[in-house]
Every structure is written in structure tokens, then in C-alpha cells.
Design a binder for these strands. Structure first.
Lengths: 344, 344
DNA sequence: CTGAAAGCGCTTACAG
DNA sequence: CTGAAAGCGCTTACAG
């Protein structure tokens, strides 16, 4: 039976013990130069590569972290993932990416493997995850370190890196107000989602500041997707009494809204101003280029990864004792071509 | 020191041996009903979850497969990944997703972990991967089973699932010819890429059938990105002698091209017809909606995953001996609004 | 149907 | 600076 070379093969070839091979690999300085070289030569000769399962078992760690996200098909996540991958690969850790709603239609499930047995840490981008499962199972010291990014779960006190969604939404609305709009609608994110809630509240607050409000009829339901943005445009178009501007909870919705509006012969921004949220690559390439809230997505990913690394270094007891930090990253409003003063 | 419960704790709680616990978990039928129930009760009481590192070490497998792709930020891959995740999660396997060009600018690197030691199989979506590294290292029986999807490496004979890029490109060109275009350009994919080469060749072949050719000046360089599509539009616009239609090697390029063209006051498709390739979600929501080659992305992912599963079942020797199958999935041309007869 | 025992391939105090 | 030995937590022939 053919087998991959093991540390014993290397030890034999180098004429040393397996302990020395192991030390040469993990802590070369404690080994004399001649043996070190002999070991490296033996490694080359045998084509040895360390068996992670064995190392992990022995070290009681896995060398991997997992990222849980609601929908990998959503382009919003791509740069966040690059940011995470960047700092994790520097730290020598592998990254599992896992869609929390793959095939089934049930609640967002916490994958079984997302426990200490499989993973040294977790970054969770999904605020809809049910938290009854592994997330809060067993003694806290045994639960893998976890940090939230972008989204979070109110009941689960863990470190997080987010933006200020409330303030960002308010900023988007104030931009529309400054252009002279008084009749402003909102295409909402998925109901129950923490981002949807914060963005809607922020929009309402900014409207209230100006003595305005958001009629229910102008809060168009949606779920962040292109299609739901298009649906919002249809609802907007069908309404007798229409707002002159709409703030969308995501860029995909904004792009879907604009596409559907244009397809119906509506001119953007002449007849309707549209603001997005996220600043996807597509936002600046669309026509009209999308006015939107720019999120520093790679930075969010990097910050979350660094925070997780910090938490992984802490002793379990200390980690549980310490307060969970909350990093809030700044956003900017990218004013482009999809907003203008109201018609007439 | 606090430790996660192990199989010994369960055995003790249930009053059986660890062997019986293990059997109950992996092969419940061979265990009597009473012990089985006792074991399950003990598992619940202790909160036991199997330690994968130990299981993997013992079983000489890892329970995970890796997907290697050139750029996770490219929305083209998202549905392929869902397709893969769908069948792999059914099979009880975890999926590592790895960007082959994360931070560094060097050649696409084969990640170290993509060896038998870390992963039971590989799906490679990156034809630019250097194949000198682990890919062809050591005896073939020891290399993890690998299947290519979408892209491939000519010199590496492995199973693959692709589309017929040559035929698809020809189909796109014939659509433009049928509309009456005689002056047709091509916005190319990244140089050296197998897809770029096949699509360019297919376009040339269809042009040649009609007694036409593709002047060098009309083969706009690109790299599949939005920005390179916009650059192609600028080059097209600046040219003295311009084609009336352009076939783009990707939807992102087509969308970038159209955006830049429209921004310069050019009407699409009235002044220039544009065909894309891929059929991203955005394609049908853009204005004009993009005429493009529809790729069955989820199917590609599912087919690649199934093929990998098959190969993983084979004994190493047999796997090496067998010819590598090549599955070619059908594509369709989605005719929408971005193409029309040439001006005048 | 069940248990004792070996062993998967590492790492790491403990001696020397 | 180096080796012998124990042990990480499982699984699986081998007996019974």
C-alpha cells in the first residue's frame, strides 16, 4: 500500500529522531545547523508534507477558521472575503467559507462543523443565524471564538465590526433633502434583518429632522436583491401618489430599481432620484452611475479577521471575561449621477 | 483544564467501550437497540461532538474538498460555488474556497494545503495555476483527486466539466452576422487564458465562415473585468474606423463597455451592438438588457462536484489508470436588447 | 453484539 | 542540542 511519507521517513533519512524533525519544522532555532540542514535535505528527498490532521489532533487546534455568510452569490461579500483571506493567509490559517442557506429553505442553520472540533474561530456575516444551536451550546470557554462582521445578533454578545447603518442611512436621506426632495421613499431590506431595521430607522430619523415622515406606502418591501429592486420600481410606478426619490437598502436593489424604471421609460435621475447602499463595483459603471453609501468592504474583512486573531490568542477564560469590543468603520456618501433635484 | 467531552466520556456515561460508541455513530445497525439508545443518551448528556482531527487522522481522510478559483470577487463564480456546495454538503463534505491570487502578484499559486494531507479532493476553476508545484508532485496515486471546471490546464490530464467556448463564441458572432453586421470586434479575455483563446478562436472561425476577419485593431485587450470593458469602449470610441458590433468575452466587460459607451452619449444598440458571455444576474436587469451566452453555472458546479465524488470513490491506482472524462454542458444564446441591426 | 488493543502521524514535557 | 516516550481522540481488525 502506497502511503505519503511521514515524519518517521524523514527522521530515518536524516538519521535523527522524529522529535528533531518536528522541532526543525516548528522551531528551527533550537536545532543545530548541521542537523537542521540534514533534516531539510531529507524533507526534500522524501517529498514530505506535514499531516495536518495529526498536527491538529496533537495541538488541539485545527488551523482553520470559518466564515458564515447568508448568500455567497451576493457580490457584496466578495471583497469582505478577500480582506479576511488576506489577513488569515498571512497568519497561516485556512478559511472555510460557508453559505448558511444552501439548499434548504429552513432557518439559517449553524453548520455542525462550526464547533471547536473543526475550526479555531468563526466570522459570522449572517445576523439571521439561529443562535439556539451550537452558538450558545456548552460552556462558554469551549465555544470557538467568534466575531460578527456587518451583521450581528442582538442577543449574542460577541465582538463585532460594523458600520453605523443608522447614520449612513440618515446621510443618504439628507443628501436627498439637500437636493430639495420632500417626498422620499425607501426600498427596504429583508424584514427582521438588523441592517434593514437600522437603515429604515436612520432614514426615518433624518426625515423626521426635516419635519417629514415615511408613509407606509412608500416603504417598499425587498430583500437586497436585484429582483426586489425591480419589484419596488413597479410598485413605485403603479402608485398614484409617488415619491420623487427613493433610498434603497442595497446597491443591487438600486440597480434593479433603476433598470426597471428605465425600461418603463422613466428617466433617472430626472424623474426619480435613486440612492443605493454598499458601493459595489457595478455602482460606478452603471448609467447613470449610482449615488450610494460607500462601505469599506475589504477593511471590514481585514478588521474582523484581525479581531478574531486577537481573540484566538486569549485564554478561553479571559476571552469570556473580557467585554466584546465593537469596531465601527466610517462610510462615505459617493455622490454620482443617479440623484438630482426633484422634477419641476 | 476544561476540555471538550471525548468519546471516552461518552463511553463511561453509557457504560460501554469507546469502540461501541464509535460504532453507534458510524454504523448504528451493528449495535443492539438498548446500547444504541444508551449511547445516544450519553451523547446528549455530555454534549459530545466528534473530533474531526482525530477521525481524519485515523481514517486517513479529511472530510473536506477545496475549490481553487482565480478571483472570488468575480460574480461569475458565485452560482458555481452554490452548485458545488449543494452536492458536497449532501455528501457530508466541507468545502474550502480558496482564491489563488489573494495578496501577492506572483503567478497563481497552488496552495500548500491542497495536498492529500489537508483535503480529499480538489475542484480547480483556475487555468492559470502553475502546475509545477503540488499539482504534479509525488507519485500520481498520492495526489488528491482533482477535477477542472470551466477552465483547465492543457498539460494536466484530469477530468473536466466545461462548456464549448469555441462554439458558444461562434454562436454569438453568427447572431451578429444574422442581424446584418459585417464589422465586428471582440473585447478579449485575459491573454493566455484558455477561455480567452477559445472564445477568440470561435469568433474568428465564425467570421471566417462569412468571409470576414477580425482586424487586430478590433481585438480589444481585456481581462474579463468591468474596467477593462470600459477601456475597450474608450478604445472603440477613439478609433477612426469602428466596428458596428462587439462581442465581449464576459458579461462584466460587456456591462463596462455599455456603461462607458452610454456615458459618452453613444446609444446601445442603435449605434453599437454588444454581446456578452456568462449571463450574470445583472445581465437581464441592465438597460439595455444584455444579449449574452447563458452558462448553466449551478449545473457546472453540480456536475464538477459529482464528478469529483466519483473519482474520490475510486482506488488510487484505478483513478490513475482510467481516462479522464470530459463533460461538456450546453449553453444558449439569450437574445435581449443590446443587439440590433447595424446603423443605417 | 461487544471489548481490548493497536495505531493513524504528529508534538512536547522530561531527561540527559 | 537531542531522544525516548506518552498521548492527542478516534477507528477497526481481531477475538470472543
Amino acid at each position: 500500500m502506497l502511503r505519503a511519507p511521514s515524519i518517521r521517513d524523514v527522521a530515518q533519512a536524516a538519521g535523527v529522531s522524529t522529535a528533531t524533525v518536528s522541532r526543525t519544522l516548528t522551531n528551527p532555532d533550537v536545532v543545530s545547523e548541521i542537523t537542521r540542514e540534514a533534516v531539510f535535505r531529507a524533507i526534500r528527498e522524501t517529498g514530505y508534507v506535514v499531516n495536518q490532521a495529526a498536527r491538529n489532533l496533537r495541538r488541539r487546534e485545527t488551523g482553520a477558521v470559518a466564515v458564515l455568510l447568508p448568500n455567497i452569490a451576493n457580490p457584496f461579500f466578495s471583497r469582505i472575503l478577500s480582506g479576511i483571506a488576506e489577513v488569515m493567509s498571512e497568519a497561516g490559517l485556512n478559511v472555510f467559507i460557508n453559505d448558511t442557506t444552501p439548499v434548504t429553505r429552513d432557518e439559517h442553520r449553524f453548520p455542525e462543523y462550526a464547533s471547536h472540533a473543526h475550526v479555531d474561530g468563526l466570522i459570522v456575516l449572517d445576523g439571521m443565524l439561529r443562535h439556539d444551536a451550537l452558538l450558545d451550546r456548552g460552556p462558554p470557554e469551549l465555544r470557538p471564538p467568534l466575531v460578527f462582521a456587518c451583521e450581528w445578533i442582538e442577543q449574542v454578545a460577541r465582538p463585532k465590526v460594523t458600520i453605523d447603518n443608522h447614520a449612513a442611512a440618515a446621510q443618504a436621506i439628507r443628501h436627498l433633502l439637500a437636493l430639495g426632495h420632500r417626498r422620499i421613499g425607501h426600498a427596504c431590506g429583508p424584514p427582521g434583518n438588523v441592517l434593514s431595521i437600522a437603515r429604515l430607522a436612520g432614514a426615518r430619523a433624518a426625515l423626521a429632522e426635516a419635519g417629514l415622515s415615511l408613509p407606509d406606502a412608500w416603504a417598499f418591501p425587498g430583500d437586497f436583491s436585484l429582483e426586489s429592486g425591480a419589484a419596488a420600481a413597479r410598485a413605485w410606478h403603479a402608485a398614484a401618489d409617488r415619491p420623487t426619490a427613493v433610498f434603497c437598502a442595497s446597491d443591487e436593489m438600486a440597480l434593479g430599481f433603476i433598470g426597471e424604471a428605465q425600461r418603463r421609460g422613466i428617466k433617472v435621475p430626472d424623474e426619480i432620484s435613486v440612492v443605493g447602499f454598499d458601493d459595489l463595483e457595478m455602482a460606478s459603471h452603471a448609467v447613470p452611475a449610482l449615488t450610494t453609501i460607500h462601505q469599506p468592504r475589504a477593511d471590514i474583512g481585514r478588521a474582523a479577521a484581525r479581531m478574531l486573531l486577537e481573540r484566538m490568542l486569549l485564554a478561553p477564560a479571559e476571552r469570556v471575561a473580557r467585554p466584546a469590543p465593537h469596531v465601527v468603520l466610517p462610510v462615505t456618501l459617493a455622490v454620482r449621477e443617479s440623484t438630482a433635484p426633484p422634477p419641476r
